[in-house]
Design a protein around this nucleic acid. Sequence first.
DNA 1: TGTACATCAGTGAACGCGCGTTCACTGATGTAC
DNA 2: TGTACATCAGTGAACGCGCGTTCACTGATGTAC
Lengths: 202, 202
Amino acid sequence: MSHTLGIRQAQKQKTRQALMDSALQLLEHQSLSSLGLREVTRAVGVAPAAFYRHFKDTADLGVALVEQALGSLHDTIRAAIVTTGSSDERIDRAVALIAAHVRTHPAHVRFIARERHGGVAPVREAIGVQLRRFADEVAEALGADPQSTGWSREDLRMLAGVYVDHMVMTASALLEGEEAPVLATARAQLRLVTLGRRHWLD
Amino acid sequence: MSHTLGIRQAQKQKTRQALMDSALQLLEHQSLSSLGLREVTRAVGVAPAAFYRHFKDTADLGVALVEQALGSLHDTIRAAIVTTGSSDERIDRAVALIAAHVRTHPAHVRFIARERHGGVAPVREAIGVQLRRFADEVAEALGADPQSTGWSREDLRMLAGVYVDHMVMTASALLEGEEAPVLATARAQLRLVTLGRRHWLD
DNA sequence: TGTACATCAGTGAACGCGCGTTCACTGATGTAC
DNA sequence: TGTACATCAGTGAACGCGCGTTCACTGATGTAC
């Protein structure tokens, strides 16, 4: 039989998740550094003091949001770096996956784009750590691709950085602009990088 | 004889600039959306009410900061897009100019990186408008380069977008990491783009 | 299964504090003659 | 140049308000026997 949370634990998790969900919603129109603890508890419908049963302060809640937001993005990235198919097929697949991710998790994407360089240090650092991990993972996948024979670790990491940064930029552009032109530009930019990659060792 | 401001006007400008300078300093450790009007006037040493003689609110001050910050960046960009010399020379020159800009205007760079996707809509939009203008300008310069013969307007704009985004990312990376490795990565990424550019029409 | 006690998520009231905004004011600067 | 009046950047006091944090509490859930 699988492990079941007690009623008390389950209820606590539910409230915690409600705080995170409400915070994410409130962050659509403001930054974490101006998000109030009372705002969040008011949106959930609990007493302000209840907040402290779950988080030390709003920065702490922000770090929890980073883990949630980048956890879901992590799955998308793993799906995007599959190396089967032609370059164009891989580009189309990666771009389609990003578009789908933004459609299903717009608030997560906005949060990451906003707080990546935001005013709350622990959150900024948590995002930085995770994005660097993503880049490491992408670099490793690139290294396994026969197309990367002869590439140094350093150059693979450099290329992975381009892909991760481009993904974040594209995701955040999708929140603001029309989908079709943003995706067309993203595909062209990836084709440009693919061409550069192909001639890197010339 | 050149036009001279009256004493009153000159003093007013001075206070206005002091408000902007103090705000920029305070924004090193927080976002605009949590910057208080009283914080700023306290730092300058004027009464809170004096703020209203210059700005409607802190968002209004933020828009003024965008113009100042991107005005100085504009000069750097114009210097960076000069098309003389080999590809490597142009890359070295552009990267050196960015590094110098970040060294001389770190607070401006931080402000732009932070508020580009920040929680204050008018500021975000002002930054977006200016960065799009920069990209247009870069696209125009690229179009004048013989290397771009046969490129469509759309592809030139796409490439210009890569350069502008890369510049902003590099500038913001310079604020956080060691200069030398960040610049080395930036140069490698620009070489990658240059290679892609050279084979775009193959 | 039932009982007696322990745990602890969430409550509700209270606190001191700094916030943004308003207002009538002051006194240096500007202007008209 | 001097005088009389107008302008207006900056003042200082006042306001109502929502904030983060604390605390003793309640009552449902968990645990030991």
